Simulated scan of single mutants.
Amino acid sequence: MLPHMDGTSGSHDERRRAFAAFLRSRRERLVPSEVGLPNGFRRRTSGLRREEVAQLAGVGVTWYTWLEQGRRVSPSAEVLDALATALRLDAAERRHLFVLADRPPALKREAGPEVVDAPIRRMLASLGGQPAYVIGRRWDILAWNRAAAAVFGDYARLEGDARNVMHLMFANPAHRAMLADWPSLAAVTLAMFRADYAPYRGDADFERLIASLRAASPEFREWWPRQEIAGHLSGHKRIDHPAAGRMLFEYTSFAVSGAEGLRLAVYTPVAEGDTERKLAGLMREPDRTPARRREPA
């Protein structure tokens, strides 16, 4: 009789083998001088030795050897961080290392402002009939197209936390008034934000935003402790525009390749409610409410 094969166990074994192979490949590509070690004259193979990686990462040589052999050992997040540093992994490689180790990476916000590259900005501009914008790790709105400004208002008028999706959702009355299904939409948006916030827990900018939302919104204050989590979802959004009336969009978002934490959100007009024609009208007249400043939504 053949032994019972657990599919989950087999998957874990395969992941350990992939983890081991990835470690070896990253070790073998490094030149000793790149990490401050002498190249020497008696190296039979290229790259670092196992004991050198172990020394750089602050772990035992035997234990590191077991990792490269695919043994059933489980490195902590701290050890994975140390290995990533020792092996000079970039952001994508570091994330891959954590995935293979079956541990979620503890992400850190990069110093300086987030940047939306020119190709993404050109793509935004090309979406003439679809409101679209790019959000960052903390859901700050970083770039948008003319259609988004026509429907939701000019985000350039907002600064700091005010140009943040969660702030707009929970602390901007004009934005809230435009969302026909605000209670259900706000609840699921909060759950998606919490999932994205988890890797950055403790980050000062995140914590400051959350504190301000607790102070500004009774709903946020009530819902945040519930610990609800949701992945990024697609669906329909009904917009009650102050000038064009009811508009219906199909909403989806995509991770921006090569940019950690950035997502592209796109609103596609739905035939119901003559939304496409209304959007075209708004884009012909960018400011339909001159009597008062309409805050972006």
Rank of each mutant, 00 (worst) to 15 (best):
R24H: 04
S25Y: 03
R26A: 02
R27H: 09
R27N: 07
E28R: 11
E28D: 13
E28C: 06
R29Q: 05
R29I: 11
L30N: 05
L30E: 02
L30H: 11
V31S: 15
P32L: 05
S33Y: 10
S33E: 12
E34V: 01
V35P: 10
V35K: 13
V35N: 06
L37D: 05
L37Q: 00
L37M: 03
P38L: 06
P38F: 05
N39E: 15
G40C: 03
G40S: 04
G40M: 11
F41S: 15
F41M: 13
R42S: 07
R43L: 06
R43M: 00
R43K: 11
R44E: 11
T45K: 14
S46T: 15
S46K: 15
S46D: 14
S46P: 13
S46A: 14
G47D: 12
L48F: 09
L48Y: 01
L48M: 11
L48N: 11
R49G: 07
R50G: 00
R50Y: 02
R50T: 08
R50P: 10
R50V: 07
E52F: 07
E52W: 06
E52A: 07
E52R: 06
V53D: 08
V53N: 12
A54S: 05
Q55K: 08
L56A: 09
L56C: 01
L56E: 06
A57T: 12
A57H: 09
G58C: 10
V59R: 06
G60K: 08
V61R: 07
V61H: 10
V61M: 03
V61I: 14
W63G: 04
W63I: 00
W63S: 02
Y64K: 02
Y64G: 00
W66Y: 10
W66D: 06
W66E: 02
W66L: 03
L67F: 05
L67R: 02
E68C: 11
Q69H: 00
R71F: 01
R71A: 04
R71C: 03
R71H: 08
R71W: 03
R72Y: 04
R72H: 13
V73E: 01
S74K: 10
P75I: 13
S76V: 08
S76H: 05
S76Y: 04
S76C: 09
A77L: 04
E78K: 14
E78S: 14
V79F: 09
V79S: 05
V79R: 04
V79M: 13
L80K: 02
L80E: 09
L80D: 04
L80N: 11
L80H: 03
D81Q: 14
A82R: 15
L83V: 15
